[in-house]
Design a protein around this nucleic acid. Structure first.
Lengths: 236, 236
DNA sequence: ACCTGAACACCGTTCAAGT
DNA sequence: ACCTGAACACCGTTCAAGT
């Protein structure tokens, strides 16, 4: 026949065919362990027990691999756009994303940086899904579509800003945290940095979840009053 | 004598001694032109007409060079902590930082990412100066020091979030913008991305300055009511 | 003491050579 | 048609050799 053996039997034992999922999962493992810079084609190939060149079957290049890792992590996020309690949804989504960032701190730079080099329309679908869902949630809550976009921007901007802030103050070992911080702040010239130096205790007691929650509250209050104004003016 | 010629005459013509400032200025030039990945020791050395190894006199390593570039850009920022109109100061600082980001889009990933790998106390002084000044501004405005820290976080988080948002939607060539956007959005599966697809026109009309200003207004309103509550409860 | 550049241990990616 | 790996054109950084 014209169709030859499809090759099911030609695989070397111990080398089941790779999948894109398996490749990305291992890539995420490397990023989590050693940071995005450590994710090289050669190392990924080695940890998968394959020729590094074979990876080009699963990602066009290294940049696409990094995008894939970001997408994989965002897949853990979910919200229910049909929930009428839109503020509650936004609040829990914020906390979900925060926890995800704390679980994968080395991925955050990818989340924040990769989209800067890809026009919105060309991003991986996985990274656009939260945007679509939030828009859907807001439209169902009564926002007109263009306003939903503004709200999304304010919300997501605030959320990512908070996460970056928190990770910047976060130090891996909590025991070392206080000592290291004092040490570092002590280095600052007292005349030039009086406030910052005196805030060492407050910096140590940082509670990210609480801080995020308060910020979200401020934002939601502002947004709700905006929604009310909009509905009032529409019903006149 | 024991002190020999200090070497002022030994320089090859056309090779005046480099300064850290000159090195960083050229580094910024490269980042602005081609992105942070293109800033290599070898290329920087070549564009300065020097042996790349000589650069290690001005920066400990490549990472320190990137920190230096971030610091250099932030030096353009200034605010007057003594101004009693703290809300006005925060608002103009926000716009200043936004314009700076639009002028140096390739530096933004550095601004956002580099601090993640350095504990707060160990950052370059230049990147801590805005923090100190904002704290000073807020304390003079009546916030207690620990609250000033919370306000700073909310403010700076929101600001950076906005800038990241705006740059993600920003496309270099405005003429190409609309076409490219439509093209990109058209690629999305209609059933899965109905809202996003329908928002193409709104996405094209994005006005970053206006969006930032509204966000700041929401935030400042929330913050001022917080300040009021605090002062009321203190005077009881 | 300072400067220079060879050398080392890596990179991503292309592409010719095998099967 | 697929897979493999040699080869190319780069990296950052160390350190020995020069002055």
């Amino acid at each position: 026949m014209a169709t030859p053996d499809t090759g099911a039997g030609t695989q070397t034992p111990g080398k089941p065919r790779l999948t894109r999922e398996a490749v990305l999962a291992k890539a995420l493992e490397i990023v989590d362990a050693d940071g995005a810079d450590s994710l090289t084609m050669r190392r990924l190939g080695q940890e998968l027990g394959r020729d590094p060149m074979g990876l080009y079957r699963y990602a066009e290049n290294r940049a696409a691999l990094l995008d894939g890792v970001a997408e994989l992590v965002l897949d853990d996020l979910s919200l229910t756009p049909s929930d009428p309690d839109w503020k509650g949804q936004l609040r829990t989504l914020a906390h979900d994303l925060r926890l995800l960032a704390l679980r994968h701190p080395n991925v955050v730079p990818l989340l924040v940086t990769r989209p800067l080099s890809t026009p919105l329309g060309l991003r991986p679908l996985g990274t656009l899904r939260p945007l679509e869902q939030i828009l859907s949630l807001l439209v169902k809550a009564g926002f007109r579509a263009p306003d939903a976009l503004h709200v999304y921007r304010a919300y997501y901007g605030f959320l990512y800003g908070h996460i970056l802030n928190e990770l910047q103050e976060y130090i891996v070992d909590p025991d070392e945290n206080e000592a290291l911080l004092r040490l570092g702040l002590h280095r600052l010239p007292p005349k030039e940095f009086p406030r910052l130096r005196s805030l060492a205790p407050a910096l140590v007691e940082y509670d990210g979840a609480e801080e995020l929650d308060q910020g979200i509250s401020i934002l939601l209050a502002g947004l709700e009053s905006q929604l009310k104004r909009q509905q009032d003016s529409a019903s006149m």
